[in-house]
């Protein structure tokens, strides 16, 4: 290649990026699309599989196109809700508190599963020597994502109450990122013990995805409020009402809707309100996760 050709090439390259940049300006967010996301508390492929029928149902109920936006990071969901990149999100109790703070209190929780009003976390291990929380001192321990309610915040809060400080008393702390990954960590011996939410644990046990002879539950937390569906505060109130009603009228007797509820692991959806999550906010402050 000749020298002057190179120079031209460089200029053309610069021109091309300018052109490409200006073209992408035209790619505006479409109207009449409901963008939904969920904290990635399980493998993202699993989340998409779980969401597909619910998405179709919401499309029918609202008359809007429903798009699921997969995410690998809890905080990204909160940030996306705050910057209005998504309209509706499946949040954990603590991520809801974070979203509430980041949106200056405007994010509205609309519904939760009946199970979420009395949620628990399970401490699991594959080490026969670990029989209680006190045996965890000096071991490696896996939380889920740092901002998970049932995989990090509430277990941490209850550990602190039991006199165990994760930063000082554990040999190493890992964040697996998701509840099913925590089980994989513990089953493989990557961590001596771990904690995850009761609902995912039961699902994995039912599906025989975990060898219960090897990995066992050795402690359970007291109950607390967890997951909900949250909308951003400036969404059209009529649409918010439609969405709320759509969830509330899901009926397990209807086979199609029963499938949705089974995938969401819900026996029933019930209305929820911000006040339900005040105790989580207090726990987060006590555990030093909220400053």
């Amino acid at each position: 290649m000749s020298l002057s050709a190179l120079r031209r090439l460089a200029l053309k390259g610069a021109l091309a990026c300018a052109l490409a940049a200006s073209l992408s300006f035209t790619a505006h967010a479409q109207e009449n699309v409901l963008r939904v996301s969920a904290i990635p508390d399980e493998a993202p492929t699993e989340l998409q599989r779980k969401f597909a029928p619910l998405g179709k149902y919401l499309e029918a109920q609202t008359g809007m196109k429903v798009v699921f936006v997969p995410v690998t990071d809890y905080a990204a969901v909160v940030e996306a809700l705050a910057t209005k990149k998504i309209d509706l999100a499946w949040l954990g109790g603590f991520t809801f508190v974070q979203a509430k703070i980041r949106t200056n209190g405007t994010a509205i929780p609309i519904v939760q599963r009946e199970e979420d009003a009395k949620f628990t976390s399970k401490f699991i291990t594959a080490d026969p020597a670990i029989k209680s929380l006190n045996d965890l001192k000096g071991k490696t321990f896996a939380f889920g994502a740092p901002s998970s309610t049932s995989g990090s915040l509430m277990p941490r809060y209850f550990l602190l109450q039991a006199g165990i400080n994760p930063e000082k008393d554990f040999k190493n702390v890992a964040f697996s990122g998701a509840h099913d990954a925590t089980v994989a960590f513990v089953a493989a011996g990557k961590a001596d013990a771990g904690v995850l939410n009761a609902s995912v644990w039961e699902k994995l046990v039912e599906a025989k995805k975990v060898d219960t002879d090897k990995v066992r539950v050795f402690a359970t937390t007291p109950p607390y409020f967890d997951y909900n569906w949250t909308v951003r505060g400036d969404l059209d109130p009529a649409l918010v009402k439609k969405l709320t009603d759509a969830f509330l009228k899901l009926d397990p007797k209807n086979p199609e809707q029963a499938e949705i509820m089974q995938l969401q692991r819900a026996s029933k959806f019930i209305p929820t309100k911000k006040e339900n999550y005040e105790s989580i906010e207090k726990a987060a402050q006590a555990a030093g996760l909220l400053k």
Binding site: K12, A16, C17
Partner: peptide, 9 residues
Amino acid sequence: LPLAILASF
């Protein structure tokens, strides 16, 4: 080159 860049964006 420009095509590749354009297609990428």
